[in-house]
Amino acid sequence: MYEHLDELEAESIYIFREAFNKFDHLAMLYSVGKDSTVMAHLVRKAFFGKIPFPLVHVDTTYKYPEMIAFRDRMVKEWAAELVVGRNEEAIAAGMGPEQGRMRCCEKLKSEGLAQLIEQHDFKGLFLGIRRDEEGSRAKERVFSPRDKNSEWAYKDQPPELWDQYNTSFSADTHVRIHPILGWTEINIWEYIAREKIEICPLYFAAEGKRFRSLGCMPCTGPIASTASTLEEIIAELRVIKDPERAGRAQDQESDYAMQKLRAKGYM
């Protein structure tokens, strides 16, 4: 039977293949989290075991050591190319969350990413954002054009009809491609369980705590949980009262924090 997860998978594969056909300089943002690890699996499904474009990781230097170890191991296992980008100038100047969380995100993540795009002349970038994560992401298109400053014209997005996407762009823009936009957090975990995908160990509970969303150490907190298996995590998510990104401090900075960050090129 053709089930909801089958449909999500098929749609994501279709999107990867569309982008691969239409764009030359592609890359996939690999944040080491569950969503981008699921994306890597979908890429291998789409291209019969290969990852035919580089994986990009924006390193803020504030990531958990477990994340870096997991990243390096998986990249090797998948025989993928990894490009690590850092905003060295901002890091050298001592940028950190104590100078303002939104400012830190903008410098180390948004700008770090913009620098990478420019250095490598990436024309298309896959991102693992999902509509159910947060309100401004819910409004996204699958193929979302950005100007040369990476800005998102969220008030005037082009139409996207059926499975036809905007795939022609002028030379000074890049496009953000969102292959798992329609997945929910539970879909991701159900799919991880179904496909037996290996996931960063920080997601599983140890000593009564686990991470539900992974990010930088100073701004990401674990939740109280005893869920140490995939089945327990899925059961926990069915009854949990908090939103997924509750442990991400930058989201809580102001009423429209994420919209403002994202308009300027945040993921």
Binding site: R131, D255, Y256
Partner: peptide
């Protein structure tokens, strides 16, 4: 549903949203 600041200020939905 109306998550964008402009949508809430003006009490109008600007863009389409999907939710579950």
């Amino acid at each position: 549903m109306d998550a964008l600041e402009e949508e809430r200020e003006q009490n109008v939905t600007i863009d389409t949203t999907q939710t579950f």
